[in-house]
Simulated assay, not measured.
Amino acid sequence: MPENECWDYTLYIPNDLRAVTVCRRTLRLILTMHGLIGLVDTAELLAAELVSNAVRHTKGPAALRVRRSPEGLVWIGAWDTDPAPPPPPRPLDLAMDLEEGRGLGLVVACAEYWGWQPSARFGDRGKFVWCELVAA
């Protein structure tokens, strides 16, 4: 594969926790097919956190979007129907004993960059919560 290859995939999912597994497996396949096997485990963890938050905390559909830039960044984003910003991430050392609430802390710890932005899909207002990993 060319080093500066760009691509963009979007997987639309229902509001169903089983969709998290579908997203993880789809992401694994995408990265493997593009020769980015070294990113698979981390990307899968981060995508699962982002998508599970999207499905758990909203009532509408969601989407996983994965793209690669010419600069060698892999962008992973989860869209949901809640336009409100995500809660601030908890530091992992404070959240390790909790049953939930570690997701964005894991994203902060494992990704190069992360953030959120308002966005619309399916005719609904919402947001993307995203992170970036270096593929090069």
Rank of each mutant, 00 (worst) to 15 (best):
P89G: 05
P87C: 07
G115E: 03
P88M: 10
V108D: 06
L11I: 06
P70A: 13
L45E: 05
N4F: 12
E100Q: 07
V55E: 04
R121V: 08
W116V: 03
E132D: 11
P70M: 10
A135T: 02
D124M: 11
F122R: 09
D82E: 09
E3T: 11
P2D: 09
D93Y: 10
D16I: 02
E99R: 14
G101M: 10
L50P: 00
V129G: 04
C6R: 15
L104F: 05
V40W: 02
W130G: 00
L29M: 12
E3A: 11
V51T: 06
P86S: 10
M96A: 13
H34R: 01
G60C: 05
P70W: 03
A63R: 02
T58S: 07
E112T: 15
M33T: 12
E49G: 01
P83N: 14
A136N: 13
A78K: 02
Y12M: 13
S119K: 14
W75M: 10
R18T: 09
E71F: 06
L17M: 09
G38V: 07
S69C: 03
A136K: 13
Y9W: 15
A47W: 00
A95L: 08
A84L: 08
C110P: 01
N4K: 15
L104R: 00
V40F: 01
D97F: 11
L106W: 10
L39P: 01
I37F: 14
D16V: 01
A47F: 00
E99F: 07
W114I: 01
A43I: 02
E132F: 09
T58I: 05
N53S: 06
E71V: 05
V66T: 07
G38E: 11
R67K: 15
R125T: 06
D97N: 09
G72D: 07
L73M: 15
L98Q: 13
R90A: 06
D41G: 14
A54L: 05
G77K: 03
G38A: 10
C110G: 02
A136V: 11
D41H: 14
I30T: 00
W7S: 07
E71T: 06
T81W: 05
N15A: 12
H57D: 10
T21K: 12
L50Y: 02
L46E: 00
W7F: 11
P83M: 15
W75V: 12
C131T: 06
A120R: 10
L27A: 04
R90N: 12
P118F: 14
R24T: 12
D8Q: 07
Q117I: 11
G115Q: 03
H34C: 03
C23V: 07
S119M: 08
R102Q: 12
E5W: 13
N15V: 07
G105W: 04
A111H: 02
D124N: 09
I13F: 03
E132L: 08
R28Y: 11
F128A: 01
A136Q: 14
L29H: 14
R28E: 07
L11P: 12
L104V: 06
A78C: 13
G115M: 09
L45M: 11
E132S: 09
G77E: 09
L94N: 11
A19I: 00
L31N: 00
S52M: 08
W114D: 00
D82I: 04
R25Y: 05
E99H: 10
M1S: 15
E99G: 15
T81F: 04
